[in-house]
């Protein structure tokens, strides 16, 4: 016969036992989870570099095969422009960037680098050709540079001064060539 379970008020076994070892493991896992979540929360709330921050080294190989590395360009101001062929506001911006580039390209202390953010090579090349862009442009392989700078959307432009520190940031497109010229002044 099945017995009826009897309700008892306090069936507590008072004997103190040591915690099972897996409770300790579980506790550690829980702490690990919380720390991870905390770190991640911190990271997800972090924005890109602050102005004045030292920029770590990065390198880019252009569509035409030239190699540029930040650490080998100390002494030059770098204007880093993130763009994509599928981004509508990058089109006008490309033209005015080129305009300013032609003014400064002969001086040896400024370099423009176009970083092609998640794009296809053919579309990117067609874009460069269409807008007659001559400053060095290359794909951001594995999205490494854009992750370094925590690029949210294109276009974004970062100005790195001669000492390798961030001098200015432009989120969104430049409206005019003067804005770019003014920005370049900040790195001097």
């Amino acid at each position: 016969m099945t017995t009826l379970p009897v309700f008892t008020q306090d069936p507590v076994n008072k004997a103190k036992k040591r915690f099972p070892y897996w409770m300790v493991i579980f506790g550690l896992l829980l702490v690990g989870l919380l720390i991870t979540l905390g770190l991640w929360l911190k990271q997800s709330r972090q924005t890109g570099f602050e102005v004045g921050a030292e920029i770590p080294d990065f390198s880019i190989t252009t569509f035409s095969g030239e190699h540029y590395q930040k650490s080998r360009m100390d002494g030059r101001v770098i204007l880093l422009n993130f763009w994509s062929s599928w981004c509508a506001s990058c089109e006008e911006e490309g033209a005015i960037l080129e305009e300013v580039w032609r003014e400064v390209k002969d001086s040896d202390d400024i370099i423009f680098l176009g970083v092609n953010y998640v794009d296809t090579e053919n579309d990117a090349k067609a874009f460069l050709e269409k807008y007659g862009i001559t400053f060095p442009n290359g794909p951001d392989m594995g999205s490494r540079i854009s992750r370094l700078f925590k690029v949210q959307a294109v276009p974004e432009t970062y100005l790195v001064d001669k000492d390798g520190r961030l001098a200015a940031v432009q989120i969104g497109p430049f409206q005019s060539a003067d804005e770019i010229r003014a920005m370049l002044e900040l790195a001097k």
Partner: peptide, 13 residues
């Protein structure tokens, strides 16, 4: 998105 359409074309190529 337009970008994704481009990537699909890339796959096609």
């Amino acid at each position: 998105t337009k970008a994704c359409a481009q990537w699909r074309e890339l796959i096609r190529e």
